[in-house]
Nucleic acid binder design. Structure first.
Lengths: 139, 139
DNA sequence: CTTGACCCTAAAGTATACTACAGGGGTTAC
DNA sequence: GTAACCCCTGTAGTATACTTTAGGGTCAAG
């Protein structure tokens, strides 16, 4: 059995993060020692890595909680998980699209800037003030 | 002269947002009427659109404040503005890279999923639990 | 003269994922 | 027995860009 500090070290997170995950329902409430210390089975480290990997591919803690519910539900199907992943995938693609548009506009503007002369003749500031802005997708 | 509500309508923002911008130093403190109402010159609408366009290409309000200072500074050069734009551009490219990696991983996973069968045999959940995660760039 | 639309301030709330702090007890080695 | 380190709870703070709430004046129309 592990103390919270052991789990934190092995899982690569802080003890505060572990307590936070517990509070958020992402990890089971652990048993307590006589002194009140949380005692963890070694398997919990794997569980934390699951959370971290899911974060790495863009899931929020809320989404991860959802994934964990599916994982624990014998009635759930693989399709349910796949649906969550596809949903996240399109969210990410949407973000990439927005960012790509920003990049294109900024790139155009920086290329148009001679980078010499005073700000009074800056094409970037001009572009920002112009009647026509970039085609803004959202916000 | 315009009341705050007029500016809000013409600028496409809420009156609360205008007061917030003022508080944040993004728009000049307007003169007040005898009744205490803010009175704006019509030019302020253009100013607000500057802010909105800068947001559209990824600048934070802090960065926009910086841009506005350059704009107002006769000693500033076009290069200064360009530097801010290039900095923002690389930030955005970095974000795109991170998101692209997430997309690739999710895409691989969703393709590997037969989308039939129980979660107990789900390749996506397996991937999330595996020893090897995706090569995570940051976080 | 009242109703509805508008204006004011200051403070608190929202979302996300933690981090930090205050205040206090337990454990281990010397 | 005391220093160094671990654990506990609960609350507040962080960043960003607003939005909401509370409580209260102002103005134009009918």
């Amino acid at each position: 059995m592990l103390n919270i500090g052991d789990v934190a070290r092995q899982g690569g997170v802080s003890v505060e993060t572990l307590r936070y995950y517990e509070q958020q329902g992402l990890i089971e409430t652990p048993d307590r020692d006589a002194n009140g210390y949380r005692k963890y089975a070694p398997e919990v480290v794997r569980h934390i890595q699951f959370i971290k990997r899911a974060q790495d591919v863009g899931f929020t803690l809320r989404g991860i909680g959802d994934l964990l519910s599916l994982k624990a539900d014998p009635g759930a199907s693989c399709r349910d998980v796949r649906d969550r992943a596809l949903g996240k995938l399109s969210e990410i693609e949407e973000k990439i699209d927005v960012l790509s548009r920003m990049r294109d506009v900024l790139s155009t503007w920086t290329n148009a800037c001679p980078s010499t002369g005073p700000v009074s003749a800056c094409p970037i500031l001009d572009a920002l003030e112009a009647r026509k802005g970039p085609a803004n997708a959202d916000r």
